[in-house]
């Protein structure tokens, strides 16, 4: 997993509540057996005027110029501003894969769907939960100021606005540690293999029918 420590990046506001993972990456792209290459199809149905299919060269597809991601001022954005319950619906990890492959490393929203939130960490992305008031403030400032850039610092758990104002965010200590060091979770879990085996033996004697 890619490590994450700090990022100073352009913010892009996706102003809609309850964005589901079907919208983030439509089903036809889930046929891929790879983990990469989903970025060009991020928000496919909102981003393009034609129907997207896997393998399409997106450089010549007709763009929906109304969609925020297509506006020249947001090109190169690395921080997504989003609304409540972001990433609801399907568990498809293709959603964070697409967001990361496009170039985003941080999302700031008032709330996330649980499975999506977990999936972000597994892919070196930082989903930040901020208050409704702060998210509102960021949306307004971002829309009003071209080139609106935020500084995200994971070690100190802070986000600094262009005005110099700073807010802090919570993160589980283990998620933070793994993200800072880009650690392989499976390798870490296997350090506890003896405990898992001991649990398994006890579990088997209590419910042998689960081990048929």
């Amino acid at each position: 997993m890619k490590a994450f420590t700090q990022l100073t990046g352009l913010a892009c506001p996706i102003d809609r509540a309850n964005i589901d993972t079907d919208a983030i990456i439509p089903k036809q792209f889930l046929k891929s057996i790879k983990r990469s290459g989903f970025g060009p199809y991020l928000f496919d149905e909102w981003r393009y005027k034609d129907h997207g299919e896997p393998g399409m060269d997106c450089t010549h597809r007709p763009l929906n110029t109304d969609f925020v991601l297509n506006q020249p001022r947001y090109q190169g954005a690395q921080i997504m501003l989003a609304r409540e319950n972001f990433g609801c619906g399907s568990s498809r990890e293709h959603a964070p894969w697409a967001i990361e492959d496009y170039g985003f490393r941080v999302i700031i929203a008032p709330s996330y769907a649980d499975i999506f939130f977990n999936n972000c960490y597994k892919n070196g992305m930082l989903p930040i939960v901020a208050s409704h008031a702060m998210v509102d403030q960021l949306f307004k400032a971002c829309e009003a100021n071209v080139g609106y850039t935020l500084q995200v610092d994971l070690p100190s758990q802070t986000v600094t606005l262009p005005s110099g104002e700073t807010f802090s965010f919570d993160i589980h200590p283990t998620s933070k540690h793994n993200l800072l060091n880009g650690l392989d979770e499976i390798g870490l879990t296997l350090l506890h293999a003896d405990k898992i085996k001991a649990f398994e033996a006890k579990h088997k004697s209590a419910q042998p029918w689960l081990f048929a």
Binding site: R35, I115, N118, N119, K122, N123, E185, I186, T189, L190
Partner: peptide, 13 residues
Amino acid sequence: GIGTSEVEHVLAT
């Protein structure tokens, strides 16, 4: 439900 990274984690551990 779980994501694909978690599918790998469950397979392995």
